[in-house]
Structures are given as structure tokens and as C-alpha cells.
Amino acid sequence: MLDASTGVSRALREAPPDRVVEAAGRAIRSALCATNTVVFVADYRINGLWPVLDSRQPEAGAEVDQSVLQRCFSSQRPVQETDDRGRCRLYLPVSVWGERLGVLMVELPDVPGDEVVRRAADIAGEVALALRAADRETDRYRRARRRERLSMAAELQWELLPGRSVSHDTFHLAGQLEPAYTVGGDHFDWSLDDDRLTATVLNGDGIGLAAALLTAVTVNAMRNARRSGGSLVEQAELASDTVYYQHRGHRHVATVLLELDCVTGRVRAVDAGSPHVIRLRGTAVSRVPLEQQLPLGMFAETRYDLQEFELEPGDRLFVVSDGVWAADPSGREGYGERAMARAMRATRLQPPPEAVGTVMRELQAFHADADLRDDAVMVCLDWRGSAGREEA
């Protein structure tokens, strides 16, 4: 048998990017004596998990219970199903760096022992890493993720994202855009460097493609400053000047920039206009008191002040755009008045990727499942504290 840690990795590295799934299947069948394998990926709304099918064999892997896939995906733990003949289906989370991509199903001739399950889980991690890298070189996995056609604006927004989740010894971060297939100007971005997490949430002015283009310029201006070693303030000021000199104050981007010190839990912030920062501490939900400054791009050479606040181990931060906070279908009170806090409290035992889904589903229910009138972006950050890191 192939050694799981070398043979599968080699097969994935040598495979063309659009054939990673097939290479993984061949290697897994050899390494684990499996009879079949299927890779499922989560869609943009994270409403389901869908097989990455070979176009030459469209029927392969289509008959799988979504509830079992969702159980594996949500718990991030292996799940087993055994039929009356003793054959087993093993479901494994396909995740890397905290990013949940999907589920790997492995069919085995009999019930696996703990060592086989461990090896299979390691292989699923290798598959996740390969898929993450291959995604830049082929459209195949993007096609599997979309259940309907993306608008041009949404295509830009999803391509601009760093991912949907990232994990670290001291924090776990996740975000979601809605409406997933037509989102315009709302966006989030993050980067982890030298025990410092920088996260931004943006609410671009306008709708559709114009809003998406405005947000893309703003995000890349902040990235340019950040990658050149610029501080949080310098990131905000470069982005503001860039937007202003493009639009002369007629367009602007409401933004909050956060920088978390992963060792101390101290957060530096620049609040440029809108997205709301909400803290869940125990069962208490409260807004983090930040002084709102001018949105990016309103005036030439706007200067921004830095603010700071502390996180305690176990704290959860939600950052939400006005599309979440101020949603008021049918003239009722805004979602942020009371309903949002109830939804946030309900997520206490869920990890951030599940938490953003819960609050977004409650937002959809608040709209009686009608399409959202406005773009909505949500980011959830759990601060674990540095003690767990020291023990690891």
C-alpha cells in the first residue's frame, strides 16, 4: 500500500489542477484499499455539499444523504455509516487553516479501525490543501460550488475574498456575504502576519457592479499599504485618498479596520463610518464603543485616529454591515434592534463558521425568506486567549 503521508501527497502534487479529485481518488483507493471516493464541496450559501463530478461520469457520487454530509461538515469530525453487509462509508472534513471546503467520502469494504480513520483524516487534509492551491488554476471547483449563476458584481466580490474562515492557536475567524449570488459592495478581508491579524469589513456605496468595483479598489488600496508595512491608519488613509481622487467625494466606502495582537488580545481599530462591532461576552451582547469617523473617500487627505479596546479569552466579536444591522422588512423595527442579539446569543456553542450561518439564516427568516433588499456582510471572531497556545 502507498504510505498515506507520502504517496497521496505526491499524487496530488503531480496531478494537473483540474484533475486533483481523480488523483486523490486513485491514491486513496491504493492507500486505504477503498472501493470508491467522492469529494463534496460547500456551495456559496453553505446550504449544501455537492459532488465534484467527472463530466465523463456525471452519475458518480450523486446518491448521498445531505444530512450525513452536513453532520460531518458542521462537526468537523469523521462520521461513519455501515450497511447490513458490513461495508462502511467514512465521511471526513476537507479543511485547511480553518477554511471549511467540503467533505471527502471514502467507501471501505469493512469497518475501519482507529488507525485507518486517522490516516484517512490526514489524507483529507492533504486533499484540502491541494484543492485550495488548484482553485487558482481551474474553474472546475468553482463551478461545483455555485448553484446558480453569479452576478458580475458577486463574481468580483467572491474572487476578492481571502477565504471564508481562518484559524490560529489564539483565534478563529469566519465571514459570509449575502445575498451570495448577487452581492454588490459589501466585503471583508483579512491577513495574518507575525502574530498580528488585520481584518477589515467594508460597505461600498451604491449597488451592483459599480459598488463592487468601488470596493475592489478600496480593498486593494488597503492591501497595498498593508503589504508595504503601513499601519492601520496608513491603510485607511491611502484607501481614502485613492477613492477620493477617483470619485472626488461622490462615492465613499464605510469601513472598519481591526488589528488584533494575537499574544495580548489588544485590538486597534479605525472606524471609518459604518460597520458595527458587536461583542458577545458570556450571554451579554453589546456594541463596542468606537468613535465613528468619516467614511473612506469623502474628502481629500482625510486623517484618521486609532482607537483601542481589549478582548478577554472567550470573547466573540461580530462585525456587521448596515445590511444586517438596519434591515427593516415591511417597515418593522431593524434587525439590529433586538432580533440580531437573540440570534447572536444562540451561537454561543457554535464555532464562527456555524455562527455566521446561524445569524444570516435568522436574518433571512426575519425577511420572511424574501431576498435581502441590501447587501449584508458578517464577520465573526473568537478570541481564545494566548494561554491555550502556550500549552500546545
Rank of each mutant, 00 (worst) to 15 (best):
M105C: 10
A211E: 03
A368S: 10
R118Y: 10
Q246M: 12
E14P: 11
E126M: 09
R251Y: 10
F188Y: 12
L213Q: 14
V267A: 12
R147W: 00
V377K: 03
G334F: 08
P179D: 05
L232G: 01
A34T: 05
Y181H: 10
E148V: 09
D83N: 13
G273F: 09
E301G: 03
V288P: 12
V270L: 02
W97D: 11
R143P: 04
Y244D: 09
A254N: 05
R85Y: 10
L238H: 04
R248T: 09
G206E: 02
S67E: 01
P17K: 02
R10M: 03
A62Q: 10
R268S: 15
P352S: 00
R223V: 05
H247A: 14
P289Y: 00
V68D: 04
M105W: 04
L150F: 10
L32C: 06
A239Q: 13
E291M: 01
Q292L: 08
S5W: 09
E115K: 05
V96I: 14
R56L: 07
L363D: 11
T347Y: 00
V64Q: 01
S386G: 07
E308P: 10
V267R: 12
E63C: 03
E310K: 00
P51G: 06
I207N: 08
M360L: 14
G7N: 13
F40G: 01
G297L: 07
G249A: 07
D369E: 15
R29F: 05
H247S: 13
E126D: 12
F40S: 05
L32A: 01
R149Y: 09
S67P: 06
R13C: 07
D122L: 13
R342C: 06
F309Q: 07
V320S: 07
G282E: 09
R136C: 00
V127D: 07
